[in-house]
Protein backbone atom coordinates (compact mmCIF):
# COMPACT_ATOMS: atom_id res chain seq x y z
CA UNK A 1 0.00 0.00 0.00
CA UNK A 2 2.75 2.42 1.04
CA UNK A 3 4.68 1.51 -2.09
CA UNK A 4 1.69 2.37 -4.25
CA UNK A 5 1.33 5.74 -2.60
CA UNK A 6 4.99 6.62 -3.21
CA UNK A 7 4.65 5.69 -6.86
CA UNK A 8 1.57 7.83 -7.25
CA UNK A 9 3.33 10.78 -5.61
CA UNK A 10 6.38 10.36 -7.86
CA UNK A 11 4.15 10.20 -10.95
CA UNK A 12 2.22 13.27 -9.87
CA UNK A 13 5.46 15.15 -9.18
CA UNK A 14 6.66 14.34 -12.68
CA UNK A 15 3.44 15.61 -14.12
CA UNK A 16 3.69 18.83 -12.16
CA UNK A 17 7.26 19.29 -13.37
CA UNK A 18 6.23 18.85 -17.00
CA UNK A 19 3.42 21.33 -16.45
CA UNK A 20 5.94 23.77 -15.03
CA UNK A 21 7.91 23.61 -18.26
CA UNK A 22 10.73 21.26 -17.27
CA UNK A 23 11.92 18.93 -19.94
CA UNK A 24 11.28 15.22 -19.49
CA UNK A 25 14.12 12.74 -19.17
CA UNK A 26 15.60 11.72 -22.51
CA UNK A 27 14.44 14.89 -24.27
CA UNK A 28 16.45 15.21 -27.48
CA UNK A 29 16.36 19.03 -27.41
CA UNK A 30 18.01 19.17 -24.00
CA UNK A 31 21.41 20.84 -23.93
CA UNK A 32 24.35 18.98 -22.46
CA UNK A 33 26.50 21.54 -20.68
CA UNK A 34 29.00 18.97 -19.49
CA UNK A 35 28.47 19.43 -15.75
CA UNK A 36 26.99 16.07 -14.79
CA UNK A 37 27.23 16.45 -11.04
CA UNK A 38 25.68 19.90 -11.09
CA UNK A 39 22.90 19.10 -13.55
CA UNK A 40 21.91 16.25 -11.28
CA UNK A 41 20.67 18.81 -8.77
CA UNK A 42 18.16 20.11 -11.33
CA UNK A 43 14.86 18.31 -11.84
CA UNK A 44 15.13 15.38 -14.28
CA UNK A 45 18.91 15.98 -14.26
CA UNK A 46 18.62 18.37 -17.22
CA UNK A 47 20.14 21.82 -17.32
CA UNK A 48 17.09 24.09 -17.60
CA UNK A 49 17.10 26.31 -20.65
CA UNK A 50 14.39 28.86 -21.29
CA UNK A 51 14.59 30.02 -17.69
CA UNK A 52 16.17 32.74 -15.59
CA UNK A 53 19.52 31.94 -14.01
CA UNK A 54 20.72 34.41 -11.45
CA UNK A 55 24.44 34.91 -10.78
CA UNK A 56 25.59 36.81 -7.73
CA UNK A 57 28.89 38.64 -7.73
CA UNK A 58 30.53 40.97 -5.27
CA UNK A 59 33.92 41.95 -6.62
CA UNK A 60 35.25 42.38 -10.15
CA UNK A 61 37.34 39.23 -9.60
CA UNK A 62 34.12 37.29 -9.00
CA UNK A 63 32.46 38.93 -11.98
CA UNK A 64 35.35 37.76 -14.13
CA UNK A 65 35.02 34.21 -12.81
CA UNK A 66 31.26 34.31 -13.36
CA UNK A 67 31.82 35.63 -16.88
CA UNK A 68 34.10 32.70 -17.64
CA UNK A 69 31.69 30.15 -16.23
CA UNK A 70 28.78 31.73 -18.09
CA UNK A 71 30.74 31.73 -21.36
CA UNK A 72 31.36 28.02 -20.83
CA UNK A 73 27.62 27.43 -20.43
CA UNK A 74 26.89 29.59 -23.47
CA UNK A 75 29.30 27.56 -25.56
CA UNK A 76 27.00 24.57 -25.27
CA UNK A 77 23.84 26.68 -25.57
CA UNK A 78 25.15 28.22 -28.79
CA UNK A 79 26.30 24.95 -30.32
CA UNK A 80 23.38 24.86 -32.74
CA UNK A 81 24.15 28.37 -33.96
CA UNK A 82 22.54 31.43 -32.53
CA UNK A 83 23.45 34.77 -31.17
CA UNK A 84 23.57 36.29 -27.71
CA UNK A 85 22.69 39.71 -26.47
CA UNK A 86 24.60 41.22 -23.58
CA UNK A 87 22.77 44.17 -22.04
CA UNK A 88 24.53 46.30 -19.45
CA UNK A 89 25.16 49.79 -18.19
CA UNK A 90 28.87 49.46 -17.49
CA UNK A 91 30.36 46.79 -19.66
CA UNK A 92 33.93 45.75 -19.05
CA UNK A 93 33.78 42.37 -20.75
CA UNK A 94 36.65 41.95 -23.18
CA UNK A 95 35.20 40.08 -26.18
CA UNK A 96 38.39 38.24 -27.32
CA UNK A 97 38.49 36.36 -24.01
CA UNK A 98 35.22 34.58 -24.82
CA UNK A 99 37.04 32.55 -27.46
CA UNK A 100 38.96 30.83 -24.65
CA UNK A 101 35.66 29.36 -23.46
CA UNK A 102 34.64 28.09 -26.85
CA UNK A 103 32.30 30.90 -27.94
CA UNK A 104 32.72 33.03 -31.06
CA UNK A 105 32.90 36.59 -29.70
CA UNK A 106 31.46 38.03 -32.93
CA UNK A 107 28.17 36.28 -32.20
CA UNK A 108 27.65 38.51 -29.18
CA UNK A 109 25.72 41.71 -29.57
CA UNK A 110 26.48 44.21 -26.84
CA UNK A 111 23.84 46.74 -25.89
CA UNK A 112 25.31 49.47 -23.70
CA UNK A 113 22.67 51.59 -22.03
CA UNK A 114 22.66 54.47 -19.59
CA UNK A 115 19.97 53.55 -17.08
CA UNK A 116 19.00 50.31 -15.36
CA UNK A 117 15.41 50.92 -16.38
CA UNK A 118 16.46 50.76 -20.01
CA UNK A 119 18.40 47.56 -19.30
CA UNK A 120 15.20 45.96 -18.00
CA UNK A 121 13.27 47.08 -21.05
CA UNK A 122 15.96 45.93 -23.49
CA UNK A 123 16.26 42.60 -21.67
CA UNK A 124 12.54 41.97 -21.84
CA UNK A 125 12.37 42.95 -25.53
CA UNK A 126 15.30 40.65 -26.33
CA UNK A 127 13.84 37.76 -24.39
CA UNK A 128 10.67 38.00 -26.44
CA UNK A 129 12.70 37.36 -29.59
CA UNK A 130 12.90 33.65 -30.31
CA UNK A 131 15.92 33.99 -32.60
CA UNK A 132 18.45 34.22 -29.77
CA UNK A 133 20.34 31.59 -27.82
CA UNK A 134 20.60 33.57 -24.60
CA UNK A 135 20.31 37.04 -23.15
CA UNK A 136 22.73 38.23 -20.49
CA UNK A 137 21.76 41.23 -18.43
CA UNK A 138 24.14 43.01 -16.10
CA UNK A 139 21.77 44.35 -13.50
CA UNK A 140 22.09 45.28 -9.85
CA UNK A 141 18.55 45.62 -8.63
CA UNK A 142 15.46 43.86 -9.85
CA UNK A 143 12.19 43.52 -7.98
CA UNK A 144 10.10 40.40 -7.82
CA UNK A 145 7.41 41.93 -10.03
CA UNK A 146 9.96 42.90 -12.66
CA UNK A 147 11.41 39.41 -12.57
CA UNK A 148 7.93 37.96 -13.10
CA UNK A 149 7.59 40.00 -16.29
CA UNK A 150 10.95 38.66 -17.47
CA UNK A 151 9.82 35.14 -16.53
CA UNK A 152 6.71 35.51 -18.70
CA UNK A 153 8.82 36.60 -21.66
CA UNK A 154 11.18 33.69 -21.13
CA UNK A 155 8.35 31.16 -20.92
CA UNK A 156 6.92 32.48 -24.15
CA UNK A 157 10.07 32.41 -26.26
CA UNK A 158 12.21 29.73 -24.60
CA UNK A 159 15.30 31.94 -24.55
CA UNK A 160 17.65 31.41 -21.61
CA UNK A 161 18.24 34.45 -19.44
CA UNK A 162 21.38 35.00 -17.36
CA UNK A 163 21.02 37.75 -14.80
CA UNK A 164 24.35 39.03 -13.59
CA UNK A 165 23.61 40.74 -10.29
CA UNK A 166 26.60 42.79 -9.23
CA UNK A 167 26.56 43.87 -5.61
CA UNK A 168 22.79 43.96 -5.11
CA UNK A 169 21.77 46.17 -2.21
CA UNK A 170 19.03 43.79 -1.25
CA UNK A 171 19.26 40.10 -1.95
CA UNK A 172 15.57 39.68 -2.64
CA UNK A 173 13.86 36.62 -4.00
CA UNK A 174 13.16 36.79 -7.69
CA UNK A 175 11.44 34.46 -10.11
CA UNK A 176 14.65 32.68 -11.08
CA UNK A 177 15.12 28.96 -11.49
CA UNK A 178 18.56 28.95 -9.91
CA UNK A 179 20.84 31.25 -7.97
CA UNK A 180 24.51 30.71 -8.62
CA UNK A 181 27.64 32.08 -7.06
CA UNK A 182 30.96 31.57 -8.74
CA UNK A 183 34.20 32.42 -6.96
CA UNK A 184 37.73 31.86 -8.20
CA UNK A 185 39.89 29.13 -6.67
CA UNK A 186 43.68 28.83 -6.83
CA UNK A 187 44.69 26.96 -9.95
CA UNK A 188 46.88 23.92 -9.69
CA UNK A 189 49.68 22.79 -11.88
CA UNK A 190 51.72 19.66 -12.20
CA UNK A 191 54.33 19.40 -9.48
CA UNK A 192 57.14 21.85 -10.05
CA UNK A 193 55.68 23.57 -13.11
CA UNK A 194 55.81 27.38 -13.22
CA UNK A 195 53.04 29.74 -14.24
CA UNK A 196 49.30 30.01 -13.76
CA UNK A 197 47.11 26.98 -14.39
CA UNK A 198 43.70 26.52 -15.90
CA UNK A 199 40.86 28.64 -14.46
CA UNK A 200 39.28 26.95 -11.49
CA UNK A 201 36.11 27.99 -9.72
CA UNK A 202 34.01 27.16 -6.75
CA UNK A 203 30.48 26.85 -8.08
CA UNK A 204 27.74 27.31 -5.51
CA UNK A 205 24.10 26.68 -6.27
CA UNK A 206 22.46 28.68 -3.53
CA UNK A 207 18.89 28.10 -4.64
CA UNK A 208 17.34 25.72 -7.13
CA UNK A 209 13.65 25.50 -7.79
CA UNK A 210 12.53 21.88 -7.33
CA UNK A 211 16.16 20.80 -6.97
CA UNK A 212 19.02 20.50 -4.54
CA UNK A 213 21.55 23.22 -3.80
CA UNK A 214 25.20 22.33 -3.53
CA UNK A 215 28.80 23.32 -3.93
CA UNK A 216 31.32 22.00 -6.43
CA UNK A 217 34.80 22.64 -7.76
CA UNK A 218 35.03 23.07 -11.50
CA UNK A 219 37.98 23.59 -13.78
CA UNK A 220 37.94 24.76 -17.39
CA UNK A 221 40.50 22.79 -19.33
CA UNK A 222 40.81 21.34 -22.81
CA UNK A 223 37.77 23.28 -23.99
CA UNK A 224 35.30 21.91 -21.47
CA UNK A 225 34.25 21.83 -17.84
CA UNK A 226 36.02 19.31 -15.63
CA UNK A 227 34.46 18.43 -12.28
CA UNK A 228 37.09 18.13 -9.59
CA UNK A 229 36.89 15.53 -6.82
CA UNK A 230 35.04 17.25 -4.03
CA UNK A 231 36.70 15.77 -1.00
CA UNK A 232 37.09 19.11 0.62
CA UNK A 233 33.64 20.46 -0.12
CA UNK A 234 31.60 17.27 0.15
CA UNK A 235 31.05 17.67 3.86
CA UNK A 236 29.60 21.15 3.60
CA UNK A 237 27.53 20.20 0.59
CA UNK A 238 26.00 17.29 2.47
CA UNK A 239 25.18 19.58 5.35
CA UNK A 240 23.37 21.98 3.08
CA UNK A 241 21.45 19.30 1.23
CA UNK A 242 17.95 20.43 1.71
CA UNK A 243 15.16 21.18 -0.61
CA UNK A 244 14.74 24.81 -1.48
CA UNK A 245 11.54 26.38 -2.73
Amino acid sequence: MMRGKADIIAALQKEILSLQGYRAEGDSTAVNVGLEAITRSFPNAIFPTGAIHEFLTEAPEHTAATGGFMAGLLASLMQRGGACIWVSTSRRLFPPSLKTFGVEPDRFIFVDLQREKDVLWAMEESLKCGGLAAVIADLGEITFTQSRRVQLAVEHSGVTCFLLRTNPRKLNTIASIARWKITPLPSQLEEGMPGVGFPRWQVELLKVRNGYPGMWKVEWSAGGFVMLPERAVAATAAGQKRKAG
Binding site: M78, G82, D106, V111, D112, E125, S126, C129, L132
Partner: peptide, 30 residues
Protein backbone atom coordinates in the same frame (compact mmCIF):
# COMPACT_ATOMS: atom_id res chain seq x y z
CA UNK B 1 19.58 27.20 -35.11
CA UNK B 2 18.74 30.83 -34.92
CA UNK B 3 21.56 33.25 -35.55
CA UNK B 4 22.64 36.68 -36.64
CA UNK B 5 21.07 36.06 -40.04
CA UNK B 6 17.70 35.66 -38.41
CA UNK B 7 15.23 38.36 -39.43
CA UNK B 8 13.75 38.39 -35.93
CA UNK B 9 17.13 39.38 -34.46
CA UNK B 10 17.56 42.19 -36.98
CA UNK B 11 14.09 43.48 -36.17
CA UNK B 12 14.82 43.29 -32.45
CA UNK B 13 17.99 45.32 -32.92
CA UNK B 14 16.02 47.92 -34.88
CA UNK B 15 13.67 48.28 -31.93
CA UNK B 16 16.54 48.57 -29.46
CA UNK B 17 18.31 51.09 -31.69
CA UNK B 18 15.08 53.06 -32.01
CA UNK B 19 14.99 53.60 -28.28
CA UNK B 20 18.62 53.57 -27.19
CA UNK B 21 20.29 54.98 -30.29
CA UNK B 22 22.37 53.24 -32.92
CA UNK B 23 25.62 53.82 -31.03
CA UNK B 24 24.45 51.74 -28.08
CA UNK B 25 24.45 48.49 -30.03
CA UNK B 26 27.78 47.01 -30.91
CA UNK B 27 29.24 43.80 -32.16
CA UNK B 28 32.97 43.27 -32.24
CA UNK B 29 35.34 41.77 -34.75
CA UNK B 30 39.04 41.08 -34.22
Amino acid sequence: GPGLEDAAVAELLDRLAGKAGVGAIRRFLP
